[in-house]
């Protein structure tokens, strides 16, 4: 999607430039793109490639990495006696659960809000600002607030609902809390994107459909959804990638519990590479590569399915 658009434009500008016929072969272009390229190479490209390489080594973050072939992958994928095998299973499983629980809600809730705002109610600006604002707060600040809101004995939620639920330390409440918090914290950006998209749909389409006798539900599925397909695709992919990188919410809210049931893969990666005791960066890297592959495969699948039906 991105590439085709860019290429088309690029070939257009290239042609334009040929027509202008100005050629100045000098070093100065590299003075403009150079600063970024150098930083990009040192702090993004090299570490990414090196990260893949060390997943095939027994690196401990200090010594020289020693090549061990697929040993790390064999250990975490197939060695059932290994704690790292359990970590990967549990961590990746919980990460996928989180993605499954949150992504649909993080698409549907902001879509409903945007549809509501699209009726131009009084206080539109206030609503918009309120729903968007939490996206500007850090995960740690938001998690402190919600850990207090959901606290067992001093939390206002238990008090006003008149229950004694242990939201953060028993299931299924721990998952429910994580999902609620994530929706509250992150839907703002998607809402704004949908608002702009809904605004762009021509009123004529709806009027024509009304004349043909379509009801609201038909209009929604036949006109609204197809008209905002591009934005839906974009938000689904971006939201999924964001949720795969889940880390701060369970770390600070549920501490990965109860009994590791909300410990996600990034928490294990962090612990293995940077936790107390000897670093097991090789294993950590192999886990990161697997997580990265999952993200790429899922994005590709979403892209394929949402694009196909055009």
């Amino acid at each position: 999607m991105i590439n085709t658009g860019v290429k088309k434009e690029l070939s257009m500008t290239a042609e334009l430039e040929k027509n202008l016929g100005k050629k100045r072969a000098n070093l100065s272009p590299y003075l403009y793109i150079g600063p970024h390229l150098i930083l990009f190479a040192i702090f993004f490209l090299f570490p990414t490639l090196y990260g893949i390489y060390i997943s095939f080594t027994n690196w401990d973050l200090i010594g020289t990495p020693e090549f061990v072939g697929f040993a790390n992958y064999k250990e975490i994928l197939f060695n059932q006696d290994s704690t790292f095998y359990d970590q990967l299973r549990n961590g990746l499983g919980n990460t996928f659960k989180f993605v499954l629980f949150t992504v649909p809600a993080c698409i549907i809730v902001p879509l409903l809000l945007a549809a509501g705002l699209n009726t131009k109610p009084k206080g539109l600006k206030f609503f918009q600002a309120l729903f968007y604002m939490p996206t500007l707060f850090s995960v740690s600040a938001v998690m402190i607030v919600f850990s207090m809101l959901f606290s067992v004995s001093f939390g206002p939620i238990n008090h006003y609902l008149n229950v004694e639920t242990n939201w953060l330390a028993t299931q299924p409440y721990a998952w429910i809390t994580l999902v609620i918090v994530t929706i509250w914290w992150t839907i703002g950006a998607n809402m704004i994107i949908y608002q702009a998209a809904l605004n762009g749909i021509s009123k004529d389409l709806y009027e024509a459909a009304a004349i043909d006798g379509a009801n609201s539900i038909q209009k929604f599925f036949r006109i609204t959804l197809p008209s905002i397909r591009a934005q839906l695709l974009y938000t689904v992919v971006i939201t999924t990638i964001a949720q795969f990188n889940i880390y701060g919410q369970p770390l600070m809210l549920t501490k990965g519990g109860p009994t590791s049931s909300t410990t996600v893969l990034l928490m294990y990666i962090q612990k293995n590479a940077f936790g107390s005791g000897n670093s097991i960066a090789g294993i950590g890297s192999a886990m990161a590569v697997i997580l990265g592959l999952c993200i790429m495969v899922v994005s590709a699948i979403q892209f394929f399915f949402l694009r196909q039906r055009d």
Partner: peptide
């Protein structure tokens, strides 16, 4: 244009993979 397209393509790469080597750098 080749460099720019390459840069755009690297955005598809999950950032989590570079975490550990970046710390080392």
């Amino acid at each position: 244009d080749a460099i720019f397209v390459f840069l755009m393509a690297t955005m598809m790469f999950p950032a989590v993979v570079n975490l550990i080597p970046l710390y080392k750098i």
